[in-house]
Amino acid sequence: MLDAILFERAGVPAIAVVTEPFRATGEAMATSWGMPGYRFLEVPHPIANLGDKELDERADRLVEQVVALLAGASR
């Protein structure tokens, strides 16, 4: 999350991906950096115990949203 915020501050479009239970933490981090409402993507939790196939499937489902957010520059 912090990496994405720092990239954005440096003028580089970025997307943070956060698992769902960490939404409030992502929002709090964005607020502490003076970027309340900063948009990030949420994915289901957990991910650490997934196999390669399941991880690839999740990543595939995410790609379009990542591209849309990066291209949108609507933040």
Binding site: F22, A24, T25, A28, M29, S32
Partner: peptide, 10 residues
């Protein structure tokens, strides 16, 4: 440091 449970203290 805003380290509150459920937010930045997980």
């Amino acid at each position: 440091m805003q380290t509150r449970p459920g937010l930045l203290d997980r």
